[in-house]
């Protein structure tokens, strides 16, 4: 089995990603107690987005796999965000 066909991630890289995820989790818990009004939600979502990106790229191997998976995933996420955006055309102006 050739390396370029199946990238094998090392234990170490997985543990590093886990460490990053735990730090981000701690950060998002810590930041809750800081009062920022509407920005609280934004920050929480950004941190969650960063965690999700880590999981997608490393744990789910998007970084190493055929690029088509990453493209599809990005497309699906964009599609969902657009649907959300269009829905709020109604709710923001009702």
């Amino acid at each position: 089995m050739s390396e370029e066909k199946h990238h094998i991630s090392s234990y170490k890289s997985h543990l590093l990603v886990l460490l990053a995820l735990l730090i981000l989790t701690a950060a998002s818990v810590a930041v809750t107690s800081v009062e920022m009004g509407a920005y609280n939600t934004l920050v929480a979502m950004l941190l969650a987005g960063a965690k999700a990106t880590l999981v997608l790229l490393w744990f789910m191997h998007l970084r190493f796999d055929n690029k088509i998976y990453a493209i599809f995933t990005a497309f699906v996420i964009v599609l969902f965000l657009l649907v959300l955006f269009v829905t709020f055309f109604d709710y923001s102006y009702r």
């Binding site: 089995m1 199946h6 094998i8 991630s9 090392s10 234990y11 997985h14 543990l15 990603v17 886990l18 995820l21 735990l22 989790t25 818990v29 999981v55 490393w58 744990f59």
Partner: peptide, 28 residues
């Protein structure tokens, strides 16, 4: 309850890492 939430988040993240590591193990 935030505490239960944090605990569940942490263990779920760990489990994600372990399942990823089990793939590495089988590949090796």
């Amino acid at each position: 309850d935030v505490v239960i939430g944090v605990i569940n988040t942490v263990i779920l993240l760990i489990s994600s890492a372990t399942v990823a590591m089990s793939i590495t193990a089988i590949q090796r």
